[in-house]
Structure formats: C-alpha cells, structure tokens
C-alpha cells in the first residue's frame, strides 16, 4: 500500500502496475485531471495546498478502509500539489481486488473520502481572479 503527496508529475501507468498481484483479478485506476471549465468559468491553472503529513496519514487510513470494506488486495494513492496545468494529472487511486465489482466500489468510495477527510485544498486561478474551493458535494464522514 503506497501513499504519496508530491510536487512532481504523476505517471498513472506505473502506479497502476504497482498494485497488480496474483490474488487479484481486477485492477482499477482512477485518474483525476485538471479541467478547463469549472462552474461556468475558464480556469487558467490550478494550485493545490496540503498538510502533507496529515494528508498521507488520511490517505493510508482510506486504503485501510478499502481493504476492510471491499477486500482490496493492494492499493496506491498519490496526489500532486503545487501548480497544476490544465490536462495534467492531479490524483491517482489504483486498487486491485479479486473481482471487478469490489474494485469499482472501492475506487468510488476512495474518491468520496478524499473529498471529505484528506487535508488538501484546490485553488482555481482564472484570467481575472482566483479562489480557494471548498468541496460542495455530500461529505463521507
């Protein structure tokens, strides 16, 4: 189980391969990328802030939950921080599990938990301003 907060570019194929093992029949990788349009505005780039030590602890905690709830055989969770250009990779969550259903459920749960308990913050920067974004969806506490 690998977790990492990094300022470097993330390669999802490497992370995805790292969770393969012979107990698993499914590997699923979620890749979050920087989108151009957000709530009707054109984003120029994104900037991420984090409390890295606590964020990595919470990411490891979430992988532990995935093992308990969805029976995953391995997992990796990597999030980039600092400046991220449009189209670049922001987060990779890769899981392996005996069957596909568990892998899908695990990935979906991990994304929701990321947006609820991991201390990472996104700032959207536009041509004429910027704003720190707070997650507006349903929290998974």
């Amino acid at each position: 189980m690998k977790v990492e907060i990094t300022t470097e570019a993330i390669d999802p194929t490497v992370i995805s391969s790292s969770v393969k093992n012979i107990e698993a029949g499914a590997v699923l990788t979620f890749l979050g990328t920087a989108r151009k349009t957000s709530r009707g505005r054109e984003v120029t780039y994104l900037e991420y802030d984090a409390y890295p030590e606590m964020a990595e602890k919470k990411m490891a905690f979430i992988l532990g939950e995935l093992k308990e709830k969805y029976n995953i055989t391995d997992g990796a969770f990597v999030h980039r921080i600092g400046r991220v250009e449009l189209g670049e990779n922001i987060v990779v969550i890769a899981v392996s599990a005996p069957h596909s259903q568990e892998a899908f459920d695990a990935c979906r749960y991990a994304v929701k938990r990321l947006k609820s308990i991991v201390p990472i913050w996104k700032k959207e920067v536009w041509a004429d301003g910027e704003e720190w974004i707070g997650y507006e969806g349903e929290l998974y506490e």
Binding site: Y48, Y51, M54, A55, V91, I120, W121, K122, G134
Partner: peptide, 10 residues
C-alpha cells in the same frame, strides 16, 4: 494545532 478549511482534493 492546524486550522483546516473545507477540503477540496482531487
């Protein structure tokens, strides 16, 4: 002691 605004990772 850390003061954490609503998070927005991903």
């Amino acid at each position: 002691v850390a003061y954490l605004p609503p998070v927005s990772g991903g």
